[in-house]
Every structure is written in C-alpha cells, then in structure tokens.
C-alpha cells in the first residue's frame, strides 16, 4: 500500500530524515514513535506530499509521489490526515467542515455529502453536534469531527500526527476509542503517538525513530517486550515513568 524508500530530507544544511525506508501493507496499523524532534511529523507529512523531500521516493497505492505524472491533489484525496491541533475550519459548522472536500474535490452532491457526514458523525458519537461551530465543541469532540472529515473522503489510508497530545487526559480516550474502532474495521493507519496502550491494543507494527533515522521496525509485541536498541529502551522507560 505504502512504500517508503530511502527518503532523505534537509532543511537547509540540517538533515531531518536520513535514509528512511519502510513498507506498510493494507490493513496494517503502524505506530510511529520516538523522541521530540526526531522527524516523525516530517516523515508522515511526506507521505501525502505536504512536505517535499530531496532524495528517495514514496509510493502510495502504486503511485510514486516524485513522479511528474502523479496528480498530488488526487493522491491527497485518497490519504486522510488528522492533525495534532485539529485544524477544523473555524468559519464552518461541523457538517460544513466534513462536506467541503467531498463536494469540491469528489464533486458529490450536497445532499449525498450531508447524508454521509451525518453517518460519520454518528460513527464518532457526535450526531447531535453537526450544526455547531468548532469553537462550541471540546477538544476531544473537535478531534473526532476532524477524523470524520478525513473519513468523508473514503481514504485508503489514514495518517494521524499525535492526535491526542493536545487533549486533556479525560478526552484522550474518547478519541482513542474512535481510532480503535477504525483500526478494527480494517482501515490502514499510520499513527504518530506516545499512547502505548493504543499501540498494544491494535498496533501491528512500530517504527521507532531517533534523529531522523528509523531505528527499529518491528512487530508491536516484540518491540514492547524486547526493544533492541538502547535508545528505544531509554525512550520506553521514560514513557512508562510518565
């Protein structure tokens, strides 16, 4: 489904990704973790072309991001993304947030997109809030709307960039539950998160990154039981201590 092949990226002379390679199969839930500044966000933004990179290639559903033939907008419409800070459009209601892209990009009719939006809102447990504006919702509710917004495009794969780290503890679970349901329904997911409970429940693989390098790429259970590198061990114990 996704093949990351020797990706290198520099900001000026500062290298933030070094020879990153990984492949992600259909239905997998891959958890990306690692210390702050290790390049996790940068890597997943490369997957839908929000960040460019200088060397290597990424292939999504048999289409290379680097190839001039690829229509990046088409590709993005099949890759959903959820941001740490939600990024709901503050001037639109929840329903409008969800239906904007289906109408403008997929050219679906208004009624059809609204029906679909309502189904999705029900799925994330927010049927009653469709007409509200983002600022009238709690953080956890906003993030669930953002997930529904991505799902409305019927994506092949969903990318999550620390979806719960801007939330108060009591709201984290409502978002994680939605993500767990999504994983169990067979969605392919790449999730940057420090929520190890989530990783253990539904994660299939872990990519551990440090200083722009993918240090470990292992099955979830193995990673938690027997981390290979010292860095990963230190990282895990620091997470557990928290």
């Amino acid at each position: 489904m996704i093949k990351i092949d020797g990706v290198c990226k520099w900001y000026g002379s500062h290298q933030v990704l070094t020879e990153c390679s990984a492949s992600i199969a259909r239905g997998e839930v891959v958890v990306v973790c690692g210390p702050s500044g290790s390049g996790k966000s940068t890597l997943i933004k490369c997957i839908n072309g929000l960040e460019s990179f200088q060397r290597g290639d990424i292939v999504v559903d048999q289409e290379s991001i680097k190839s001039p033939k690829t229509k990046i907008y088409k590709l993005r419409s099949r890759v959903g993304m959820v941001f740490q800070s939600f990024e709901l459009y503050p001037h639109l209601t929840c329903i409008e947030n969800i239906t904007l892209a289906p109408q403008k990009v997929l050219k679906r009719s208004r009624d059809e997109s609204i029906d679909r939006a309502k189904t999705l809102l029900k799925q994330v447990g927010l049927s009653a809030h469709g007409a509200k504006y983002p600022s009238q919702l709690s953080g956890g509710q906003q993030q669930r709307v953002a997930i529904a917004r991505s799902l409305a495009m019927d994506p092949l794969v969903m990318l999550f960039d620390e979806p719960t780290s801007a939330l108060d503890p009591e709201m984290i679970n409502e978002v994680l539950d939605v993500m767990v349901d999504l994983a169990r329904s067979g969605m392919t997911m790449v999730v940057v998160t420090h929520e190890m409970g989530f990783a253990q429940r539904v994660g299939t693989r872990v990519l551990f990154m440090d200083a722009g390098v993918i240090v470990e790429d292992r099955a979830c259970s193995e990673f938690f039981d027997r981390p290979e590198s010292d860095r990963a061990r230190a990282f895990l114990s620091s997470i557990v201590r928290r």
């Binding site: 941001f83 990024e87 709901l88 904007l100």
Partner: peptide
C-alpha cells in the same frame, strides 16, 4: 495548519 489541512483533504 489550516492550509495543510485543506490540502490534505485533496483541495
């Protein structure tokens, strides 16, 4: 982030 979010939905 608003631009990123809009672009990531394929607009």
């Amino acid at each position: 982030g608003q631009l990123s979010a809009a672009l990531s939905t394929g607009l």
